[in-house]
């Protein structure tokens, strides 16, 4: 579907919102850094870093890729594993 708005129009409209969200993200990571204790070994932090790397890609399906970072994998043999018989 063609988008009614051009890329410059979208950037004009959304620049401040995007900036705000990046600042929120940076501040949240700063907060983690400042706090007592360490989450360096927490796998969730690794997933956040993986997702941030995807955000910096130039592809047009970054949202879908980020979703997959935070998703359990699908195993197409699940019906055997769970012993659920297909109809």
């Amino acid at each position: 579907m063609p988008l009614p708005l051009t890329a410059p129009e979208i950037l004009n409209r959304e620049f401040l919102e995007i900036r705000c969200r990046i600042l929120d993200l940076a501040a949240a990571l700063d907060r983690l850094q400042r706090a007592e204790g360490s989450v360096a070994d927490d796998p969730r932090l690794a997933r956040l870093r993986e997702a941030l790397a995807i955000v910096q890609d130039e592809s047009d399906d970054r949202a879908e890729q980020v979703q997959m970072v935070f998703s359990r994998p699908y195993d197409d043999t699940w019906q055997n594993a769970l012993k659920v018989a297909p109809r």
Partner: peptide, 16 residues
């Protein structure tokens, strides 16, 4: 995190 796996499982059961 369960959505992708669960959605695929549901589609399997429906399409079967």
């Amino acid at each position: 995190e369960d959505k992708y796996q669960g959605t695929r499982m549901i589609l399997d059961m429906l399409t079967d």
